[in-house]
Design a protein around this nucleic acid. Structure first.
Lengths: 255, 255
DNA sequence: GCGGGCAACTGGTTGAACCAGTATCTTCCT
DNA sequence: AGGAAGATACTGGTTCAACCAGTTGCCCGC
């Protein structure tokens, strides 16, 4: 089935159903601080009335919240808002960065995320260098070529989408379930960002060279070179983002 | 409320309800390969009969599977098993390592996890060195002292639990939401392992020294020293585990 | 042969009733 | 008066029986 990347297409936004909508709203209220950790939610029967639905549908929403560690549910005692800062997982990133209460906290999370992403990609590229198959390399080269072409055309939106696909293929090439599972929430976050702000991708003159350098190192199974090439690129480009974000931090005086 | 660590106590295993039981069973069937990616599940009405329950309860289980990216549900088309290897998240680790189909794959995941954990903890300790408050340091020192005491007593079970608490406090001291959210699934996995095999903790003579070294570096806000101390320790102790696991890989000839 | 519509799936939603834990208040016995 | 036992009024957990709403494909009529 041709290794569907699932990055392109699939723009058929699934029609949000009732339970999903309620889940997203409660998630928003928790992440925004409107509902605080330790606070008790209204009873299921009341919540169902509030959301103009029935208990069964509302309970489906609660199951999602529970699975995301956003609430704890105990028979006979009600539903309690959990401390997502301690109990959450990376899957919360997109929602939190969009709906978190404090701008400063969101910016700080973004700053931390940049570094974590760089370290994660270093692990990925190191593994890709030692484990990639010829097919992996061929696919990566193909995607890289598309990227270079897009770069020459100056098509930022295409580059952004292509970068996502390239990173995804790189994670595939690492052949590591833990890395894939760690990368997934970050990639998903990246994808959602690009859906909303395709122009956010940082145009850097060194991008084609970076792609070429990583590809050469991966082809040569040279982990160290792959890591250092990638690190050098991110240290430079992330610096731009960090500068922008820290400036934003200073100018903002929220709360 | 005294910063409950939520690591000790809480041994009151929540009585698993119907939906949770069904969720866990379907998760097991998917992770074990009994239900393969792309395969269609039976209709909700049939599944409800199979599990001797009603549709609403079964749907609550499906919402959890859906939220864990183990299935995709489409109105009018049924429920399809997703490819957890590509779509999964770190939260699957405990279940997969327990119920994955292939022993070789499970061991390989464990091997990759060891390295990813080491890298993650390096990030954590680096941040802890630069961001820890005096309260963080005090708590870490307190926990470290308990660990040394337990080490002298040779109480492996206590050390294992304490190590978990210490790592958890270290993540707190890093004051980074992305790191906390990345660490949570790994810590949770560690906790579950210890619940089942408390003796698995590797007793290493260098442990007290490692604790002391990290504490000193964190107190002195010396990121580099903290990272190198931690890396040196893990490179040595993980080596033991890697050896054991690779030996297990060779002796096993599954499938 | 082709097109439209009907029929038979699928999941999504609804409402009501009852089961089962938990906490609290009340009552009755000591 | 004090304390224990039980009634009560919450909470979530489970069940049932409909009906609504997308999808698919068959089948009939043109």
């Amino acid at each position: 089935m041709g290794q569907t990347i699932a990055s392109d297409g699939d723009s058929v936004s699934s029609s949000p159903n009732r339970a999903e909508t309620i889940y997203l709203d409660l998630q928003r209220r928790i992440l925004s601080g409107e509902l605080k950790a330790g606070q008790r939610l209204a009873a299921e029967r009341e919540l169902a009335v509030e959301y103009a639905t029935n208990r069964n549908t509302l309970r489906e929403a609660l199951r999602k919240l529970e699975h995301a560690n956003l609430v704890t549910v105990r028979h006979g005692q009600g539903v309690t808002v959990a401390d997502f800062r301690r109990k959450g997982s990376l899957a919360l990133l997109p929602a939190f960065l969009e709906q978190g209460a404090s701008v400063a906290e969101r910016v700080n999370v973004l700053l931390d995320l940049l570094e974590a992403r760089a370290r994660m990609l270093e692990m990925v590229v190191a593994r890709a260098a030692t484990r990639s198959t010829p097919e992996d390399v061929a696919r990566l080269k193909e995607l890289a070529a598309e990227q270079v072409a897009g770069f020459d055309r100056g098509d930022l939106a295409a580059i952004a989408r292509g970068d996502l696909a390239w990173v995804d293929a790189l994670v595939d090439a690492a052949h590591s379930l833990p890395l894939r599972w760690t990368a997934n929430p970050v990639i998903e976050f990246y994808r959602k960002i690009l859906d909303r702000f395709p122009m956010i991708w940082i145009s850097d003159a060194g991008y084609p060279g970076y792609l070429r350098g990583v590809m050469e190192a991966v082809s040569a199974s040279d982990s160290a070179a792959a890591v250092s090439t990638m690190r050098a690129f991110f240290e430079r480009t992330d610096q731009v983002l960090v500068g922008t974000l820290e400036q934003l931090l200073e100018s903002e005086t929220p709360q």
